[in-house]
Simulated assay, not measured.
Amino acid sequence: MNDELRQRGIILDELRTQLAEGTISIGAAVKRLRSEITGLRQEQFADMCKISLRTLRQIEQDEGNPTINTLNAVFKPFGMRVGIVPTRR
Rank of each mutant, 00 (worst) to 15 (best):
D13E: 15
I10Q: 12
T87A: 11
A28S: 15
G83P: 05
I11R: 07
V30F: 00
C49T: 12
Q61M: 09
I26R: 03
T17N: 09
R8L: 07
N72R: 04
R32Y: 02
M80V: 08
R89N: 12
V82C: 02
A29Q: 10
F78Q: 10
E63N: 11
R57G: 09
L71G: 11
V74S: 04
R32Q: 15
K76L: 06
T87R: 11
M80N: 05
F45D: 10
E14L: 11
I37H: 05
N69I: 02
F75I: 02
Q18T: 09
S25E: 08
I37N: 06
T67S: 14
K31S: 09
L15Y: 03
E36Q: 14
K50M: 10
G64T: 08
P77Y: 01
V82I: 13
P77K: 01
G22D: 05
E43T: 15
A73I: 01
I37E: 07
L53D: 13
Q42N: 03
M48R: 13
I51S: 06
E63D: 10
R8P: 02
T70V: 13
S52T: 15
G27N: 08
D13A: 15
N69Y: 05
T67H: 00
L71W: 04
M48G: 03
R81V: 05
R8Y: 03
V85H: 04
V74H: 06
E4R: 10
